[in-house]
Design a protein around this nucleic acid. Sequence first.
DNA 1: GTGGTCTAGACCACA
DNA 2: GTGGTCTAGACCACA
Lengths: 124, 124, 124, 124
Amino acid sequence: MISIDIYSRIPIYQQVIDGIKSEVMLGWLKEGEQITSIRELSVEVGINPNTVSKAYLELERQGILAVATGKGYFVAPDAARRIRDSVIAEEKVRFLSAAEKLLQSGICREELEDWIRKIHCISP
Amino acid sequence: MISIDIYSRIPIYQQVIDGIKSEVMLGWLKEGEQITSIRELSVEVGINPNTVSKAYLELERQGILAVATGKGYFVAPDAARRIRDSVIAEEKVRFLSAAEKLLQSGICREELEDWIRKIHCISP
Amino acid sequence: MISIDIYSRIPIYQQVIDGIKSEVMLGWLKEGEQITSIRELSVEVGINPNTVSKAYLELERQGILAVATGKGYFVAPDAARRIRDSVIAEEKVRFLSAAEKLLQSGICREELEDWIRKIHCISP
Amino acid sequence: MISIDIYSRIPIYQQVIDGIKSEVMLGWLKEGEQITSIRELSVEVGINPNTVSKAYLELERQGILAVATGKGYFVAPDAARRIRDSVIAEEKVRFLSAAEKLLQSGICREELEDWIRKIHCISP
DNA sequence: GTGGTCTAGACCACA
DNA sequence: GTGGTCTAGACCACA
């Protein structure tokens, strides 16, 4: 179940994209599996079907979803790997940019490494 | 001199805000010093005075600039420290968020630490 | 319905801010309710949309309104309490400042208390 | 000595007006006494002579200063009483307005009276 | 000269 | 439809 915050500055269609990607990454959606239809999802989360459609089209463009005309949307083969690769590429940029600004602001490397060690996270 | 990219997705007024903050951080603008007037800056960088005004008002709200009626805007005392504190607060969040997503994507802690060590940066 | 006096020395956007706050305080606008859109209100009261927008942005900054992209502005949860708290803080300062100046001008405490007792007002 | 805050939202000429009124009220300036010339005061407090002139003209209009052509400005006879009367009139309005808003916000009369009792002030 | 407010109107992303 | 940004230009108070 995707959760939407209509008051967030992140566009709703982007929240849908992020939600589906998460579900694939967590293994809740398997490659090849059919996903909830546009109409169903729009009712489920209480948003406009056009907004869901926009998200699905973007996911298709990214090769994460595949559309079978008249049948609906399916998780593309290789979807998990594609998502993982793009997440790593994007987050590495953010990580390095933030690290650089923190170093420039007087935070030392040791403190950054300390912060990393304290992150509690379960790798999937 | 603040450089503006009118094709950027970052709003122009935000670029002005970031530009002024940079100049204070780098010591090009000293605390107590008067800054370029709204009208002057608007012709210098080729944007509308209203846009500069919006940036200056936001900087005043953040306690980074102070306005003297009929005289103009000045760099507030304590401006550099305020900027530094807010940069650290914001970038720490981004740093930890990115690190967490990278760890979840299978990047190990040692690799993150390695990336940090390779950042070349001159602390002020 | 918000009434605007274009000849007042109080800026129009401030009158809009005060008007919305009054309507929330009086219970005419309920928390969570959508408020009149920028464009609608601007034609209703005969002012420019930019002026309404300035007021709404400030109310959002104060946590009294929340904006949903593409949908509009809504009264924030907790709006009434926030307004009440800020009114009390501001008016207490004015009250004490005025009282002190009156005492210094030779008005005695008993007279001030007498004035208070004569105020006719319906608590909500 | 009048103290000026150029970053205050209160106009400088108004701060000069308030400063002179205070000095008369406190008895530092006696009725009939000549006051510091426009030029002198402007140098003393580091502001523009035009600004001091604007303040003096307004004080003359209010009957608090009197001008002797070629000689300068003098404290008008009856100045202290005039100031006292106008302060009482203005502050009474502010006092009642603030009290009314506080009562409407749920503060009870007893609390207002309590606040008054706690004001520490030396009547002149 | 300095900012602050306001209007009129264009153009954009998003739902 | 919604709000957000931006321009061009007027008018005001203040120093």
